[in-house]
Structure formats: structure tokens, C-alpha cells
Write a protein that binds this DNA or RNA. Structure first.
Lengths: 255, 255
DNA sequence: GAGTGGTCTAGACCACTTC
DNA sequence: AAGTGGTCTAGACCACTCG
């Protein structure tokens, strides 16, 4: 319907957006068929490959399900999924996508010399200046994510006192401007821990309550160079409802 | 190189497998460029779209990184990633993929009448017979995953005493033969908990130690019909090192 | 048998990086 | 300017589902 060939947005994304709109608006009802790929070709006046590329996005999001020989259907799952662990976004966007309202607060920002542990992870020199931010994110006004981030100062060496917005809702850009590298890959480690005194106070939960902890190193995967280290504590108010799909590769251990 | 057009395996998978072999064998060194897509076209005698479809798989696995205008490179990350949470596989395969040797043991198998809680989740009638399996999976001989699975008996109503292999390493097929549905989607919930007495004994850890718990409902996403319920407890011997990528969609909240 | 999605081809132009 | 990956086209054949 609403494909604009002057819009620089790729056509397949426009197609995906438009079909998604149809799903969310109820025009395509859940469990029902979406028009066939060849019909969508006629509808949007794009090639079938472009349609397929768009449908693949919706399949990946869990919104649509393509069945060989049968058709593409609207899935019944969108409201049961609230997060994805295969991609990362700003924490506040994560909270919003999970269905909550998001707020944030910077607890502290400082420049510290890299100690041995930080050096090992960020591969900096001992004593090199590193930004340290402690932030608290709220979901529906309740404390939800507590983070400690370490970023080598790099090209921002002489700046200080950044705005809450800059280090909370545009943190990825902040890391990029410090390191001069694109933040596109993160290596994360998911661990359950028990709340210590500080976490307990911040989250207003009993000491010893189990919570999710995820350390995350953003990195330049080609040079294997760490760009930043994040320590993320998730209160149990945040639910991790994720969609998983059966492995598409039958023979994972080829090679 | 080794593309076989008589092999029913899709060409793009063969291409992906072959390039992956080259990466794992060290022929393509990490950080270095893979031949360009047009060169790969000449090498494998397939179209560029087929090459691109294969490279997309490797990109998704974190093995290769394509940079617009520059080339496709071998990533430096393979040995730092050991699991994916966006797909599911048999538990023993999960353990192997994570780099451990896998063993399993059935602790109990029984048929029980569905109680209220199971009914609510599996949407069965109260009292309907349900298989209940308790299984323990080992990684490097150490207890790693404890699972309790509930599957409506369905068409296997009159059978009992299944082999360990059938319910441990071919469990997904088992669910399919019970329910008559394809197991392709799972809705999972990730929660940190503390070990109770039983878990502590099974995992040989102190009571109260935090562990990861994931409930998983396999389902037919079109009819929104639950096929099975799994309660999975992960000992901390299993590390969840996952690769995350920056969200490809800038404007998630379109529509 | 008709219609569907899955795979594949051989082109084309564009945006981007690199030199 | 040359080479790269990103997008797009207009076809084709296949495997599968369904009536």
C-alpha cells in the first residue's frame, strides 16, 4: 500500500513495516493468513524477493509464520514475548519494548584510573583514565536495572559531567564517540547472583534475593578490541519472556 | 569448492558449511578477509544471491562480519561464544555446543493426571494423563541441567517406559509424536532462583546458591496451543556466553 | 492440480570504503 | 576510480500442502 520509492528506507523494510502495521491494527487477524507472496507483489509493486526479505524480518520478530506449501500466517505470540537476548538496545528502550514505561537516573559519574581487573577486560594500560557511570533505570517507576559502565575516556579525555540523556539514553553513541569505533557486537555473560546490600537497597528487595546479572563487553569483533564493559543487574520486576525457535541448522557440528 | 548439486542440501547451506570449514580449519584466518562475494561466485559456481544467503548464516552465527564497501571478514569471537538463547536444541546438544561432553540420566518417568496448574499452562482437561519426566544432564561428568518435562500423553497414551535416548536426546521428536504437532517455537521465561534442597543435592551445591531457571512452553503458534511444559534448572557450571548484536531496526516502534 | 513458500539465477544499480 | 557489500528485479523450477 504505502510504499514510497523516494524514501531512502529500503523497500523490504517499508514492506515489513506496512505489514506489521496491518498485524498490529488487527487488519490481519492472528492465526489468519496474510496474502500470499505473489499477491503482496501485486499489492506493493515490488519483486517477490523484496517481499520475502520483508517477511523474513517479521518471521524473525515472531509476528508472522511462513509455512511451506500453505501460506504465511499471523502468529499468536506477540503479546507473550517481551524481550530478545540476541540483540541489544539502550536499556530504556529495552524497558519500553518489554512493555513498561522507562525512566533513568545517573547515580554517579567519575573518571578513575584503570585497575588491574578493568585492564584485563578492556585491555587498557594500568592507570589509563576510564569513565565510570552508575545508572539506575526504572520500569513503571520501579527500580529495574542497575548498571555500572566502564568506558576508556579516549577522545573525550578532557570532558566531564555529561547529561543524563547522553549517558543513559544515548549511551551507545557515547561509547562510539569515546572509542571511535562502531558499537555493533556485544559479548555477554548471563549469571544468577544474590542481591548484596547495595543492590537490595537500590531495588528495595531483601538481601540474598536472587537476581539476574549480565556482564557485557561491547567490542570491535575484527580486532577483538573491547570498547566498554557493562555490569547490568536486573531486578525481578523485569521479566525475560523470550521467543526461541528450533535450530534451523540440523547439523550444527559440520566442519 | 565442494558443492554437490545432486545433494538435496540447499546450495547456500553447502556454501556456508564450506566457508565455515575454511574458517575453523584456519584457512581463512581470523580478522582477515574472506574472498569477495563476486569471487565466491566464481569459486562455487553459484549465483551471488546464493552466496549472500550463505554468508548471512555465518554472519548470524557470529563467524563472519560483512562491512559495506569493505569486505567480509572472519570474526574473532567464535571461542568466546558458547550458547544462543534465540534458538533451542536438545539439552545434550546445547551442552556439547557449549564445549562440554554430554551425558544424561532419567531420574523418573511417570504418567500423572493433570492438576490445576498444569491444566492452566498446557490447556488440558483436569485429570487428563500427562507424561512427567525428570532428567539430569551432565556436562563433563558434572551435573549441569535438571529438567522436569510435562507432555500430554496424546497418541502415546498406552505406552510407558521409554528409553533414555528417546526422552533425552530425541525429546523434541517425542513431543511431536505425542501431540502430532511440529515443535518449532518455544516461549521461555528466564528467572534467577535459589537452589532448594533437592536442587542442591542434585547439583552438589549449597542450598540457597543462585541458579538460572528457565521455563519453556513449546507451542503451535498459530493455534496458540501449548505442546509441552519444561522446567529447566541450570547449574552454574554451565556458562551462558552469548553474542548480542545491535538491533538492526532503528525504529522498533513503527506501526 | 492449483497454489503456496523455498531455492536459485543472471543480471542491474546504488552506497560505501579504500586507494 | 575501482572494488566492496546492500538492494532490487523478473524471471524459473522445486517441494510442499490442500482440497
Amino acid at each position: 500500500m504505502s510504499i514510497n520509492r523516494h524514501d531512502p528506507t529500503p523497500l523490504y523494510i517499508q514492506v515489513a513495516m506496512d505489514i506489521k502495521k496491518g498485524i498490529l491494527s488487527g487488519e490481519y487477524e492472528s492465526g489468519n493468513k496474510i496474502p500470499s507472496e505473489r499477491e503482496l507483489v501485486q499489492l506493493y509493486h515490488v519483486s517477490r524477493n523484496t517481499i520475502r526479505q520483508g517477511l523474513k524480518m517479521l518471521n524473525h520478530e515472531g509476528l508472522a509464520i511462513s509455512n511451506h506449501g500453505s501460506g504465511t500466517y499471523v502468529a499468536n505470540m506477540s503479546d507473550m514475548i517481551n524481550s530478545r537476548l540476541d540483540i541489544f538496545v539502550e536499556h530504556s528502550q529495552f524497558i519500553q519494548t518489554a512493555g513498561y514505561s522507562a525512566k533513568y537516573q545517573v547515580l554517579s559519574q567519575s573518571v578513575i584510573p584503570a585497575d588491574e581487573q578493568i585492564c584485563r577486560i578492556l585491555e587498557t594500560k594500568i592507570g589509563e583514565p576510564v569513565f565510570c557511570f552508575e545508572k539506575l533505570f526504572f520500569a513503571d517507576e520501579k527500580p529495574a536495572i542497575f548498571t555500572i559502565d566502564y568506558v576508556p575516556c579516549g577522545e573525550k579525555k578532557n570532558q566531564k559531567n555529561f547529561s543524563e540523556e547522553e549517558i543513559c539514553s544515548n549511551f551507545l553513541s557515547f561509547v562510539e564517540s569515546c572509542t571511535g569505533d562502531v558499537v555493533e557486537y556485544g559479548k555477554s555473560n548471563l549469571t544468577p547472583i544474590t542481591a548484596d546490600t547495595r543492590i537490595a537497597v537500590l531495588f528495595d528487595i531483601p538481601i540474598g534475593q536472587p537476581i539476574l546479572f549480565m556482564s557485557e563487553v561491547f567490542l570491535n569483533p575484527l580486532r577483538n578490541k573491547p570498547l566498554s564493559l557493562g555490569l547490568n543487574y536486573y531486578s525481578n520486576y523485569i521479566q525475560f519472556k523470550i521467543l526461541r525457535r528450533r535450530s534451523e541448522i540440523v547439523n550444527e557440528n559440520y566442519g
